[in-house]
Every structure is written in structure tokens, then in C-alpha cells.
């Protein structure tokens, strides 16, 4: 693996997508600030805006770095460089993950921080952490769809399914007894159920990305 080349390709994707990443952080902080109004409607609005920003950034990144590369015919330029398909796949996965982690980490930390403020519903911390990681999985799924299928239609279907899945899983997790029991309390309770869900989610990310490598290694035509 030519790590220097992978690094250059990641930096390239950062350069080409830096504005959306940079803009998403203040936009997310603005969304978080709404919660300080203190009304239930503000809380709901904050959650909706945060989800929109995080999922939107992930989907946009995946579309631009994978689908548009083929659609705009820049893939031929990249693949004419001394890079193997394995290195290209690694660069795409890492670029998407690293670039997404910038707003994701900032906004997840911000959301958890807001929940830990005096007077906030501290019991929501485990559920928020679980749903944040769920959004990381959602983005990974979209990236995987983009890299493997290189098709706008399939990636759009991936965005639709993962957004739907996020809502369904959000509902399911909120109704798991080990999570729902303490969710609206004033103390943070990391129950075995919450830990199990979180760890299972965290395992899903490398599993999805590993699957991408496996499928990509079986391809024979790259242009």
C-alpha cells in the first residue's frame, strides 16, 4: 500500500470539499444554540436541524467524492496516476470518514455538552450517543453504496434507505426497556442494553468498510 499516495488523494478530497465541511460546523453550532431557548419546540427543531446537517454532509460528501468522480469523468484522471484500485478505495473510505468525522465529532460533542448543561435532560445522553453513531453508520452505508455501485440511482436509494433506517432504529432504540427507562431522567445511566447497542453500532462501521474492500477487490474493470 502506497500510503503517501493515499494521503495525497485524501488531501485532494479535503481541498475539493473543504467549504462544505467548514460551513457545516458553525451551522451545527447554530442549530445547537436554538436549544438554549429552553422550549420543547426549540429542542425538537435543534434535533431536526442537527440530523439534517450531519446526514446532509455525509450524503453530499459520498455523492461528490464517489459518484461525481465518475459522472464528471475525473476518475480517469485519478486512475491515470500511480495508484492501484485498492489504494483508491482506501483513500475514498478514509477521506469520507475523516472529513465526515470533523463535523460529526464537533456536533456530537456539542449535543452531548448541551445535554450535560445544568437543567438539561441528562438521561438523554446514551440515546443521543447511540443515534450519533447510527448517523455515522448511515454515512458509511452511503459511502459504501457510492464506492461499490458508482451509480447515482443506487446511492440515492442508499440515502433513502439509511434515512428511513435511522428513523426506524431511532424508534426501536427509544423503546428498548434498557434505554427508555432512564431516557427522560436527570441522571446518565449507561445500561448494558445501551452499551450493547452502541458497541454493535461501532462494530458495524469497520464491517461495512471491510465489505467494501472485499467487493472492490473482486472487480476487474475500473473505468
Amino acid at each position: 500500500m502506497n500510503y503517501a499516495m493515499v494521503r495525497r488523494l485524501i488531501l485532494k478530497d479535503w481541498y475539493l470539499n473543504r467549504w462544505i465541511i467548514i460551513a457545516s460546523v458553525p451551522a451545527g453550532i447554530g442549530a445547537l444554540a436554538i436549544v438554549l431557548i429552553g422550549k420543547p419546540i426549540a429542542f425538537m427543531l435543534c434535533i431536526i436541524l442537527l440530523c439534517m446537517i450531519i446526514i446532509g454532509v455525509g450524503a453530499q460528501l459520498a455523492m461528490v467524492t464517489t459518484i461525481n468522480e465518475r459522472k464528471d469523468q475525473t476518475l480517469a484522471f485519478v486512475m491515470s496516476l500511480p495508484v492501484s484500485w485498492r489504494e483508491y478505495t482506501a483513500a475514498k473510505i478514509l477521506a469520507n470518514l475523516i472529513l465526515f468525522l470533523i463535523p460529526w465529532l464537533a456536533l456530537t460533542a456539542g449535543a452531548l455538552g448541551v445535554l450535560l448543561l445544568p437543567g438539561a435532560t441528562h438521561g438523554l445522553v446514551p440515546y443521543t450517543a447511540i443515534m450519533s453513531v447510527e448517523m455515522l453508520i448511515t454515512t458509511s452505508l452511503i459511502v459504501v453504496a457510492g464506492i461499490i455501485t458508482e451509480s447515482q440511482a443506487w446511492t440515492t436509494a442508499g440515502i433513502f434507505c439509511s434515512s428511513l433506517g435511522l428513523n426506524v432504529l431511532g424508534y426501536v432504540f427509544a423503546h428498548l426497556r434498557g434505554i427508555s427507562r432512564f431516557m427522560w431522567g436527570n441522571e446518565v445511566h449507561w445500561t448494558p442494553t445501551a452499551w450493547t447497542v452502541l458497541l454493535a453500532e461501532l462494530l458495524m462501521v469497520p464491517l461495512l468498510l471491510g465489505l467494501t474492500f472485499f467487493i472492490q477487490s473482486r472487480k476487474t474493470d475500473f473505468l
Binding site: 502506497n2 464528471d72 469523468q73 475525473t74 480517469a76 484522471f77 491515470s80 500511480p82 495508484v83 489504494e87
Partner: peptide, 22 residues
């Protein structure tokens, strides 16, 4: 051996595009 070979190849194709935003 494509990585080593492409280190010494210059490739221009009619359907190859550069990054429009850069």
C-alpha cells in the same frame, strides 16, 4: 504492476476531465 508503470506514463484521454472547482 500498474502502480510502478503509471509512475512513468503520461495519459491524456478525450473523456478525461480535470477538477472543475480547482
Amino acid at each position: 504492476g500498474q502502480v510502478a508503470a503509471k509512475q512513468e506514463i503520461g495519459f491524456v484521454s478525450e473523456d478525461m476531465r480535470l477538477y472543475g472547482a480547482a
